[in-house]
């Protein structure tokens, strides 16, 4: 599975067990349907039934369209039975505020778990 490199965002896929999908940089897509959502769809197809960590620790910015794409990722990975742990950086206020509600929403999904972590020094 190839990495995504578009504008200021890189999504790096490491084929480990669990598969690590790291979002790095800034995601300001105004039309996620053009690049981001199709890529997420390919991730869903590629890793059906596997275990994955989706790591947002190094994401420095996202717009609200990206939030929707993350919701799409959660829903799709759940449908594809991808046992997924979503990690966000709770040391960053904006990530804590944006991702914390996903922790409770994650309970709606059988295969999705959302965890806040402190950034390492």
């Amino acid at each position: 599975m190839e990495n995504l490199k578009s504008d200021d965002l890189e999504i790096a896929v490491a084929l480990e067990d669990p598969i690590r999908i790291s979002w790095i940089g800034e995601s300001g897509f105004t039309d996620p349907g053009a690049v981001l959502d199709p890529y997420i769809a390919r991730l869903g197809d590629a890793f059906c039934g596997r275990n994955a960590i989706v790591d947002f620790m190094d994401l420095n910015y996202m717009n609200s369209s990206t939030v929707r794409s993350i919701i799409y990722l959660c829903k799709l990975f759940n449908e594809k039975s991808i046992q997924t742990t979503i990690i966000y950086n709770k040391s960053l206020n904006w990530q804590a505020v944006s991702f914390r509600p996903l922790e409770s929403l994650g309970q709606l999904f059988e295969y999705i778990n959302v965890e806040g972590k402190e950034a390492s020094a």
């Binding site: 609200s64 939030v67 929707r68 509600p101």
Partner: peptide
Amino acid sequence: YTQRLMELIEDPLRGPTQLGLIR
């Protein structure tokens, strides 16, 4: 914000996001 996320779960790819002002 949480309510809007719940609505988006239903159909995340359709319609306006309507998250920006809430954020």
